[in-house]
Design a protein around this nucleic acid. Structure first.
Lengths: 230, 230
DNA sequence: CAACCTAATTTTGAATTCAAAATGCCCGCA
DNA sequence: TGCGGGCATTTTGAATTCAAAATTAGGTTG
């Protein structure tokens, strides 16, 4: 099945940053890169547009979606909700084997923290969150989480990790593991939400200043909108 | 833009029940029905497949997705989470105008209840939930909610509404309005979840018995799976 | 009579073609 | 020199074409 393959490969390019947010996607170029005709490529772009990774401009082609500070906030809010839900469900359904696997990942992650290996730390971090979602054993939730988390991750280069935040993150992860072991769904949900809120603030602080100038829906607009609503 | 139009129209057909779940979707037929070639139609089917309304079988065409009891449960769980999140955000962001509009809808809905007009009642009910999600003012959340709620609604014909449940639903809706007015996000989230859980049980009780025989992933399987996980 | 094998037909997946829209280029002109 | 208009080129959106796979039908044989 050619179509699904292409969706996956283009998504890869978008998430890896090989096609940076905001850049024009030339059909021609991707076609010859993949060695396929425009038909399946265009199908793939439509699907990715439905996922929110690509925006289609009528008669003007496709661009890699560039999250505004606003849409990034929206994504974080939803991601919090999804992770909280996953945490609750996981506490009800997680198997001992899954729990052990997460504990192992946690230990490995702490090791990377002590070794100051940020990349490996992030890898474990991600695997843990994925494992929790998987333990929730809900296919719909997994699918939505994957796309939302991917869209957030696509701008992860914005977030530098101050070392004091790193300590906090480790503490929070201990709480996560603890809540899982106690099967405390409510507690886990709370921790996951605040955990994500920390990351969100990091991205906000890192990213807001720099894309305020070019995005149409910038911070000033955002503030005005949300204040007007009150 | 032909493509988006076709996505919308086919989705309509699927949600209206004009193409019942599980039926084969003949490309040819839809093409002549819409008066378009296969290219944009196929693009539309790919998008709808990504949304979960259609399943694509390699070299064997498309079928209208038929939720199994399992996937329906998954959808309900996620919908609960999304509505709860929407409720929390809405309490923070809802404007007085939006609140008044919901109160008006609520009053209208009670009127339909007293007049025993089920169809109109459902209409208002849906509009209220949509309004709450809209008041949450989060585009990503709106999008996800729409698709998840649509997939649930696509099998709504399964759920008969016993009159005692109807009373409960009205009571719950009073609680919803009350929590919104008090801007009690936590409380609203709880009410929305239990509200949805009632509906979920209705659908389960109505639907489970009848599709157990044909679906591959039936109730027995479901129970076994989830029990095995403990 | 039933099971199976083969050939015709239909249907799918993808490439190619074609028309319309947008982009870019060049020239004239103030 | 700077600006605008018109033509050529490129790119997009959709139809058509073509090959491969599946389905169907029919015939053969045990």
């Amino acid at each position: 099945m050619l179509h699904a393959e292409i969706v996956a490969r283009v998504r890869e390019l978008l998430l890896e940053g090989a096609i940076p947010p905001g850049t024009r996607i030339a059909e021609r170029e991707l076609c010859e890169r993949f060695g396929v005709s425009r038909t399946p490529l265009r199908e793939a772009l439509k699907v990715l547009a439905a996922e929110g990774l690509v925006v289609l401009l009528p008669n003007r082609g496709a661009r890699a979606a560039k999250p505004t500070s606003r849409s990034l906030q929206d994504l974080f809010e939803v991601c919090e909700g999804l992770e909280a839900l996953a945490g609750e469900l996981a506490c009800r359904r997680i198997t001992d084997a899954e729990l052990r696997a997460i504990a192992a990942l946690h230990a490995e992650m702490v090791g990377h923290y002590k070794a100051d290996d940020l990349a490996q730390y992030f890898r474990c971090n991600r695997l843990i969150h994925d494992a929790i979602v998987r333990a929730a054993d809900n296919a719909v939730l997994s699918g939505l989480y994957e796309t939302v988390a991917a869209r957030i991750r696509s701008v992860r280069y914005l977030a530098p990790m101050p070392s004091d935040h790193w300590v906090i993150a480790i503490k929070e992860h201990e709480g996560i593991l603890n809540a899982l072991e106690r099967r405390d769904g409510q507690g886990l949900a709370l921790i996951l939400r605040s955990h994500l809120r920390v990351k969100r603030r990091q991205v906000e602080e890192a990213g807001l200043a720099e894309n305020a100038d070019e995005a149409g829906d910038d911070n000033v607009t955002l503030l005005r909108r949300r204040q007007n609503r009150a």
